[in-house]
Protein backbone atom coordinates (compact mmCIF):
# COMPACT_ATOMS: atom_id res chain seq x y z
CA UNK A 1 0.00 0.00 0.00
CA UNK A 2 2.99 2.20 0.39
CA UNK A 3 2.81 3.31 -3.20
CA UNK A 4 -0.93 3.50 -3.64
CA UNK A 5 -1.92 7.01 -4.46
CA UNK A 6 -5.71 7.22 -4.31
CA UNK A 7 -5.71 10.36 -6.43
CA UNK A 8 -6.11 9.67 -10.11
CA UNK A 9 -2.63 9.43 -11.48
CA UNK A 10 -1.63 12.16 -13.79
CA UNK A 11 -0.40 9.76 -16.39
CA UNK A 12 -3.28 7.98 -18.01
CA UNK A 13 -3.23 4.49 -19.23
CA UNK A 14 -0.42 2.14 -19.17
CA UNK A 15 -0.49 -1.50 -19.93
CA UNK A 16 1.75 -1.91 -22.84
CA UNK A 17 0.43 -5.27 -23.82
CA UNK A 18 3.02 -6.28 -26.24
CA UNK A 19 3.18 -8.29 -29.26
CA UNK A 20 2.00 -11.41 -27.63
CA UNK A 21 2.40 -10.70 -24.01
CA UNK A 22 -0.80 -10.85 -22.44
CA UNK A 23 -1.50 -14.40 -21.89
CA UNK A 24 -1.73 -15.50 -18.46
CA UNK A 25 -1.10 -12.30 -16.80
CA UNK A 26 -4.47 -11.32 -15.71
CA UNK A 27 -6.17 -9.23 -18.23
CA UNK A 28 -3.51 -9.19 -20.75
CA UNK A 29 -4.58 -9.64 -24.24
CA UNK A 30 -4.67 -13.29 -25.04
CA UNK A 31 -5.50 -12.41 -28.57
CA UNK A 32 -2.10 -10.90 -28.93
CA UNK A 33 -0.37 -13.89 -27.44
CA UNK A 34 -2.14 -16.28 -29.69
CA UNK A 35 -1.67 -14.16 -32.75
CA UNK A 36 2.00 -14.96 -32.63
CA UNK A 37 3.05 -18.11 -34.39
CA UNK A 38 6.45 -18.82 -32.94
CA UNK A 39 8.44 -21.69 -34.31
CA UNK A 40 11.62 -21.71 -32.27
CA UNK A 41 12.49 -20.48 -28.82
CA UNK A 42 14.16 -17.08 -28.90
CA UNK A 43 17.91 -17.09 -29.01
CA UNK A 44 19.63 -16.34 -25.75
CA UNK A 45 20.99 -12.91 -26.48
CA UNK A 46 19.99 -9.94 -28.59
CA UNK A 47 21.99 -9.25 -31.74
CA UNK A 48 25.37 -7.64 -31.32
CA UNK A 49 25.06 -3.96 -30.42
CA UNK A 50 28.09 -1.87 -31.45
CA UNK A 51 27.50 0.43 -28.49
CA UNK A 52 27.14 -2.54 -26.17
CA UNK A 53 24.02 -1.10 -24.52
CA UNK A 54 20.82 -2.99 -23.90
CA UNK A 55 17.81 -3.05 -21.61
CA UNK A 56 19.19 -6.07 -19.79
CA UNK A 57 17.40 -8.93 -18.07
CA UNK A 58 17.12 -7.14 -14.74
CA UNK A 59 16.35 -3.46 -15.33
CA UNK A 60 14.79 -1.15 -12.74
CA UNK A 61 11.12 -1.42 -13.67
CA UNK A 62 9.38 1.38 -11.83
CA UNK A 63 11.16 4.44 -13.10
CA UNK A 64 10.76 6.71 -16.10
CA UNK A 65 13.20 6.16 -18.94
CA UNK A 66 14.08 8.73 -21.58
CA UNK A 67 15.32 8.01 -25.11
CA UNK A 68 19.09 8.25 -25.10
CA UNK A 69 19.37 7.15 -21.51
CA UNK A 70 20.19 3.52 -22.21
CA UNK A 71 21.99 3.86 -25.55
CA UNK A 72 23.12 6.75 -27.74
CA UNK A 73 20.72 8.18 -30.32
CA UNK A 74 21.41 8.46 -34.04
CA UNK A 75 19.41 11.22 -35.76
CA UNK A 76 21.17 14.20 -37.27
CA UNK A 77 19.53 17.58 -36.74
CA UNK A 78 18.06 17.31 -40.23
CA UNK A 79 16.74 13.80 -39.74
CA UNK A 80 15.18 14.79 -36.43
CA UNK A 81 13.41 17.76 -38.04
CA UNK A 82 12.08 15.60 -40.87
CA UNK A 83 10.92 12.91 -38.41
CA UNK A 84 9.12 15.51 -36.30
CA UNK A 85 7.32 17.00 -39.29
CA UNK A 86 6.29 13.60 -40.63
CA UNK A 87 5.08 12.41 -37.22
CA UNK A 88 2.94 15.55 -36.90
CA UNK A 89 1.54 14.96 -40.37
CA UNK A 90 0.60 11.35 -39.58
CA UNK A 91 -1.17 12.02 -36.28
CA UNK A 92 -2.04 15.72 -36.31
CA UNK A 93 -3.10 17.14 -32.92
CA UNK A 94 -6.71 17.75 -32.04
CA UNK A 95 -7.65 21.24 -30.92
CA UNK A 96 -5.87 22.11 -27.70
CA UNK A 97 -3.60 19.07 -27.88
CA UNK A 98 0.14 18.98 -28.39
CA UNK A 99 1.62 17.67 -31.64
CA UNK A 100 3.53 14.36 -31.47
CA UNK A 101 6.76 16.27 -32.01
CA UNK A 102 6.18 17.98 -28.67
CA UNK A 103 5.44 14.66 -26.95
CA UNK A 104 8.74 12.94 -27.58
CA UNK A 105 7.62 10.83 -30.53
CA UNK A 106 10.67 11.64 -32.71
CA UNK A 107 12.91 10.80 -29.75
CA UNK A 108 11.20 7.46 -29.40
CA UNK A 109 11.71 6.70 -33.10
CA UNK A 110 15.36 7.63 -32.71
CA UNK A 111 15.67 5.38 -29.66
CA UNK A 112 14.08 2.57 -31.66
CA UNK A 113 16.34 2.79 -34.69
CA UNK A 114 19.39 3.16 -32.43
CA UNK A 115 18.81 -0.17 -30.71
CA UNK A 116 19.81 -3.64 -31.78
CA UNK A 117 16.98 -6.00 -31.00
CA UNK A 118 15.42 -8.52 -33.38
CA UNK A 119 12.31 -6.36 -33.25
CA UNK A 120 14.09 -3.10 -34.09
CA UNK A 121 17.24 -3.74 -36.05
CA UNK A 122 15.69 -3.92 -39.51
CA UNK A 123 14.14 -0.48 -39.16
CA UNK A 124 17.40 1.44 -38.85
CA UNK A 125 18.34 1.61 -42.56
CA UNK A 126 14.71 1.90 -43.64
CA UNK A 127 14.03 4.94 -41.44
CA UNK A 128 17.36 6.72 -41.94
CA UNK A 129 17.34 6.29 -45.71
CA UNK A 130 13.69 7.28 -45.85
CA UNK A 131 14.23 10.49 -43.92
CA UNK A 132 17.13 11.37 -46.17
CA UNK A 133 15.01 10.67 -49.24
CA UNK A 134 12.09 12.75 -48.01
CA UNK A 135 14.33 15.82 -47.61
CA UNK A 136 15.90 15.24 -51.02
CA UNK A 137 12.47 14.87 -52.60
CA UNK A 138 11.31 18.07 -50.88
CA UNK A 139 14.34 19.93 -52.21
CA UNK A 140 13.76 18.55 -55.68
CA UNK A 141 10.12 19.56 -55.75
CA UNK A 142 10.03 22.69 -53.60
CA UNK A 143 13.63 23.67 -52.89
CA UNK A 144 13.13 23.35 -49.14
CA UNK A 145 13.57 20.55 -46.63
CA UNK A 146 10.48 18.59 -45.62
CA UNK A 147 10.07 20.31 -42.26
CA UNK A 148 9.82 23.70 -43.98
CA UNK A 149 7.13 22.72 -46.43
CA UNK A 150 3.50 23.71 -46.15
CA UNK A 151 1.03 21.04 -45.09
CA UNK A 152 -0.18 20.78 -48.67
CA UNK A 153 3.33 20.25 -49.96
CA UNK A 154 4.11 17.68 -47.28
CA UNK A 155 0.88 15.91 -48.09
CA UNK A 156 1.68 15.85 -51.79
CA UNK A 157 4.83 13.87 -51.06
CA UNK A 158 3.16 11.63 -48.48
CA UNK A 159 0.28 10.89 -50.84
CA UNK A 160 2.71 9.42 -53.35
CA UNK A 161 4.05 6.83 -50.90
CA UNK A 162 1.34 6.20 -48.28
CA UNK A 163 -0.50 3.59 -50.32
CA UNK A 164 -3.97 5.12 -50.53
CA UNK A 165 -3.51 5.36 -54.28
CA UNK A 166 -1.25 2.93 -56.17
CA UNK A 167 2.41 3.65 -55.50
CA UNK A 168 4.77 3.89 -58.47
CA UNK A 169 7.08 0.95 -58.81
CA UNK A 170 10.21 3.06 -58.33
CA UNK A 171 8.84 4.35 -55.01
CA UNK A 172 8.41 0.91 -53.40
CA UNK A 173 11.27 1.44 -50.91
CA UNK A 174 9.68 4.75 -49.90
CA UNK A 175 6.31 3.07 -49.52
CA UNK A 176 7.91 0.61 -47.15
CA UNK A 177 9.58 3.47 -45.29
CA UNK A 178 6.26 5.24 -44.85
CA UNK A 179 4.60 2.09 -43.57
CA UNK A 180 7.32 1.46 -40.98
CA UNK A 181 7.53 5.10 -39.99
CA UNK A 182 3.77 5.30 -39.54
CA UNK A 183 3.82 2.18 -37.38
CA UNK A 184 6.40 3.78 -35.09
CA UNK A 185 4.98 7.31 -35.17
CA UNK A 186 1.37 6.28 -34.54
CA UNK A 187 2.36 3.64 -32.00
CA UNK A 188 4.66 6.16 -30.35
CA UNK A 189 1.93 8.78 -30.18
CA UNK A 190 -0.95 6.59 -29.04
CA UNK A 191 1.14 5.23 -26.18
CA UNK A 192 1.56 8.68 -24.65
CA UNK A 193 -1.03 9.76 -22.09
CA UNK A 194 -2.49 12.29 -24.53
CA UNK A 195 -2.51 9.77 -27.35
CA UNK A 196 -4.24 7.15 -25.23
CA UNK A 197 -6.99 9.54 -24.33
CA UNK A 198 -7.22 10.72 -27.94
CA UNK A 199 -7.75 7.12 -29.01
CA UNK A 200 -10.46 6.48 -26.45
CA UNK A 201 -8.72 4.60 -23.65
CA UNK A 202 -10.20 5.51 -20.27
CA UNK A 203 -8.35 3.20 -17.92
CA UNK A 204 -5.21 3.20 -15.77
CA UNK A 205 -7.12 4.81 -12.94
CA UNK A 206 -7.58 3.21 -9.56
CA UNK A 207 -11.17 2.82 -8.39
CA UNK A 208 -12.78 1.19 -5.40
CA UNK A 209 -15.11 -0.94 -7.49
CA UNK A 210 -15.12 -2.18 -11.06
CA UNK A 211 -18.13 -0.46 -12.54
CA UNK A 212 -18.44 -2.54 -15.67
CA UNK A 213 -20.05 -1.27 -18.85
CA UNK A 214 -22.10 1.90 -18.80
CA UNK A 215 -25.83 1.76 -19.64
CA UNK A 216 -25.02 3.52 -22.93
CA UNK A 217 -22.49 0.84 -23.80
CA UNK A 218 -24.96 -1.93 -23.04
CA UNK A 219 -27.62 -0.26 -25.17
CA UNK A 220 -25.12 0.07 -28.02
CA UNK A 221 -24.73 -3.71 -27.99
CA UNK A 222 -28.41 -4.45 -27.58
CA UNK A 223 -27.90 -5.81 -24.08
Amino acid sequence: MSDFNPEPVNRLPRREALKWLATAAAGLSLAQLDAASPTIPPSGTPPFAPHGKRIGADPVLNKTYHPGELWPLSFTVEQRAAAAALADLITPPEKGDLPPSALGVPDFIDEWISSYYDETIKDRPIILEGLTWIDQESQRRYQKVFAQLSLEQQSAIADDICGVKPVKKELRPQENFFKRFRHLAAGGYFTTPQGMRDLGYRGNRPSATFEGPTPEALRHLGL
Binding site: V9, R11, L12, P13, R14, E16, A17, L18, K19, W20, L21, A22, T23, A25, L28, P42, S43, G44, T45, P46, R54, I55, G56, A57, P59, L61, N62, K63, T64, Y65, L70, L103, G104, F108, E111, W112, S115, Y117, D118, E119, T120, G187, G188, T191, T192, P193, M196, N204
Partner: peptide, 21 residues
Protein backbone atom coordinates in the same frame (compact mmCIF):
# COMPACT_ATOMS: atom_id res chain seq x y z
CA UNK B 1 0.97 2.93 -13.47
CA UNK B 2 3.86 3.49 -15.84
CA UNK B 3 2.75 4.14 -19.40
CA UNK B 4 4.65 2.77 -22.40
CA UNK B 5 6.17 6.18 -23.15
CA UNK B 6 8.02 5.88 -19.83
CA UNK B 7 9.63 2.60 -20.83
CA UNK B 8 12.46 1.73 -23.21
CA UNK B 9 11.14 0.97 -26.71
CA UNK B 10 7.57 1.62 -25.56
CA UNK B 11 7.77 -1.48 -23.40
CA UNK B 12 7.76 -4.00 -26.25
CA UNK B 13 8.60 -7.64 -25.79
CA UNK B 14 12.30 -8.41 -26.20
CA UNK B 15 14.40 -11.47 -25.58
CA UNK B 16 15.43 -9.97 -22.24
CA UNK B 17 11.86 -9.13 -21.17
CA UNK B 18 9.73 -11.57 -23.16
CA UNK B 19 6.40 -10.41 -21.75
CA UNK B 20 7.29 -6.76 -22.12
CA UNK B 21 9.38 -4.32 -20.19
Amino acid sequence: FQTPDQMPLRGISTVEKPFGF
